[in-house]
Structures are given as structure tokens and as C-alpha cells.
Amino acid sequence: MAVKWLPRWFFQLASPRWCYQITGMLIPWFAVVSITLVVLGTIWGLAFAPADYQQGNSFRIIYLHVPAAILAQSFYMLMALAGAIGLIWKMKVADMVAKSVAPIGASLAVLALLTGAIWGKPTWGSWWVWDARLTSMLVLLFLYLGVIALNSAIESETTAGQATAVLSLVGLVNIPIIKYSVEWWNTLHQPASFKLTEKPAMPPEMWVPLLVMVIGFYTLFGLALMLRLRNEILQRERRASWVRDLLSVKA
């Protein structure tokens, strides 16, 4: 093996059976850490962090909004990366990861848009503003929806996985282009009155709980991903003997 410094379990992740077992061992840890961090971050952010001097208490929605937005973006990258691995090395597990990530990422993008709209109502006075960030998040949601639609339209699982991988890679190349073109379009068309969107330099009492929430969200949705992935593995490997053994023992 060319890469000797990687631990053995890393390579074992490529086999659905081992992946099922390893994620099974990781899940309790992720559950404990994520619940602790999210509860801690929520209480800290909502109750103890100081109110913003301009926006008052309405700014507190960033403790939900920012983690959701960050995760929506990084899950798209994860999806494209997993898709590429599946496409190049024909790894079944990578395909399954890509498939399981898509709905989670899409719902995070929806969450980011919803919280953005709720924050926008008191701050901007309207539910929706064609702000550069909101618009590029909306486009990201469209990209997710396209990937999900394509995946569900193709019957064969392998073909669906490969086609989705190509699409998400094309999307990955386009995301920076879309992001910058939208930003550029926005500066052309919008008056500069919405500069409020640019975050002020936050004091540590504000950003530490935010950081806690971001890490909490990563572990929480990593957990969600593992649960989905395990379902996907069982469903696709239902004809394998180890799945049959597992299910018959439980039944």
C-alpha cells in the first residue's frame, strides 16, 4: 500500500460492513459531544451573550443562522468530494455518503435562508432582500435540489451515484464563480444602505458561543449524516449475508 501513515481503520471505511461498524462505535461519542455543545452554545448565545448595540436582541439568530450557512456550504464540498472519490475509485461507501449528505445540506440551506429572512424582517424591514449572501445561498439550495432530483430520477443506484457525482463536481467549480458574480451584481444594483450585512468586529463574548455552536452543528449534523449513511448501507447491502445476520439477530 502506497500510503502507510494512514491508520488501518481509515481504509476499512471503504467497506460498507466496516463502515457500518465504525460509525456505530462513533455515534454515542458524537451524540454526547454534539448535544453538550449545542445546548451550551444555545443557552450561552441566547441568554448570556451581550446584546448588539445596533440590533439589540434580534442579532441572536446568528447563533443558528451562521452555523447553518457554514454547514450548508461545507456539506456541498463534502458531497462533491465524496462523489469524486466514488467516481474515481468506484467506492460504494463514498457514493452512499454523497447521497446521504444531499438532503441534510439542502435542509441546512433552507434553515439558513429562513433564519436570514426572520432576521431580515426587523433589521431590513422586509422578509427578503436580494442581498448577495442570501442570493448565493438560494443558488446553493437550487444546486442541492438539482442533485437530489437527478439522484431520484435515475433508477440504477450506481448510475445515479456517478451522475450525481459529475453534477456536484460541476457545481463545485461553479460555486465560486456564482458567489463572486452575484456579489458583483449586487454591488451594481443595490444601493449601499445594506452594508449592515457586513458583520462588525465582534467582541469575544459574542463570537465564542458562536464558535461553540458552529462546532456543535458540525458534530450534530455529522451524527445525522452517519445515521442516514447507516440506513443507506443497510438498504443497499440488504442482500449481503452480514446484513441478513444482523437483522435476523435483532428480529
Binding site: 443558488v139 437550487f142 444546486l143 435540489l145 438539482g146 432530483a149 437527478l150 430520477a153 453534477l167 460541476v170 457545481g171 461553479n174 464563480i177 456564482i178 458574480s181 452575484v182 458583483w184 451584481w185
Partner: peptide
């Protein structure tokens, strides 16, 4: 489906 896949990618050209 094709419009769902392709339209988001058209946005920079449109802009």
C-alpha cells in the same frame, strides 16, 4: 430535470 440542473449554473452568464 435538465432545467433544474442547468439553470442555477447559468446565473453568472446571465449577470
Amino acid at each position: 430535470l435538465i432545467s433544474l440542473l442547468v439553470l442555477p449554473l447559468y446565473i453568472p452568464v446571465l449577470i
